[in-house]
């Protein structure tokens, strides 16, 4: 293999983890604002077109539903279809519920006889399954958080965990209105994350020709402000990389925060 080919192979291998992320994942609650305790149904899927389930169901085994008082709500009627997963939630307490899927793990790329190999899994499995002396081994740690919010009655404060990349509401995520400006703060391990690129995409992509995505960058306090151009369901994505790893072999940590936000008309 000449040097140029080798470089290309390496570049492709490096790009693979990103390719795996090309499809976006999301939660879609049937309602985000409720005026009395009731059931909601949530769809969860992986697709390029936000909130249109046309690719794969999202695995929701790691789902946690945090009630306003911090207790957990168990999903009911959970099922996984070909294109989407779905589950029901009985929301009985006034306040804001957080639906979250938090995942972390190790991503490794290496080569066997010049062929790129890709591996993803837990830190524990990594030690067992990935040869430490693998050729061209590249290891990174991943931490992702997928969220959405539903409020019964008046919105209540949301607590962050201080782990990974998170959104700390300045404007409450269930109090968003078209034409108004909302502000969110992003935290990495509980500290303001400056310079984070935040992308917002409104759903119903299939009825327009362009993505019309909004790109924002957090300021020195980790804040972004967005004036909602129109009502709709928005998909928010923020990504950040650093070197605060917990596994020795890893050099980088990639963090992702994704949320579904509903913006109501005036």
């Amino acid at each position: 293999m000449n040097r140029v080919t080798r470089a290309i192979v390496l570049a492709v291998a490096a790009a693979l983890p990103l390719a795996a992320q090309a499809h976006s994942y999301w939660l879609l609650p049937s309602s985000t604002v409720l005026s009395s305790p009731q059931w909601i149904t949530v769809d969860a899927a992986v697709s390029n077109d936000m909130f249109q389930f046309n690719h794969n169901a999202l695995n929701v085994e790691a789902l946690a539903v945090v009630a306003p008082d911090g207790s957990r709500v168990a999903p009911e009627n959970a099922s996984k279809g070909k294109l989407r997963s779905t589950f029901d939630l009985s929301l009985t307490k006034p306040g804001t519920y957080r639906l979250e899927i938090v995942r972390g793990g190790i991503r490794a790329n290496w080569k066997v006889d010049g062929q790129p190999k890709r591996w993803m899994g837990s830190a524990e499995a990594f030690a067992k399954e990935v040869p430490a002396d693998a050729e061209g081994l590249e290891v990174s740690e991943t931490a992702s958080r997928l969220e959405t919010f539903v409020t019964v009655g008046a919105p209540t404060a949301l607590k962050t965990t201080g782990k990974g990349l998170e959104l700390a509401p300045v404007t409450h995520p269930n109090d968003l209105f078209a034409g108004e400006t909302a502000t969110f703060q992003f935290l990495a391990d509980g500290k303001p994350a400056a310079g984070v690129e935040v992308t917002l995409v409104r759903g119903e992509r299939r009825y327009r020709n362009q993505q019309d995505e909004l790109k924002l960058t957090t300021d020195k306090d980790g804040r972004v402000s967005v004036k909602w151009p129109q009502a709709g369901m928005y998909w928010l994505d923020a990504d950040l990389e650093d070197d605060k790893v917990t596994v020795k072999a890893a050099k980088r940590r990639t963090m992702a925060y994704t949320a579904t936000l509903e913006v109501l008309p005036q």
């Binding site: 604002v33 409720l34 005026s35 009395s36 009731q38 109501l264």
Partner: peptide
């Protein structure tokens, strides 16, 4: 059903 639709008075 009672207060269920009060939220529609947005």
């Amino acid at each position: 059903a009672g207060t269920k639709w009060l939220k529609d008075l947005r």
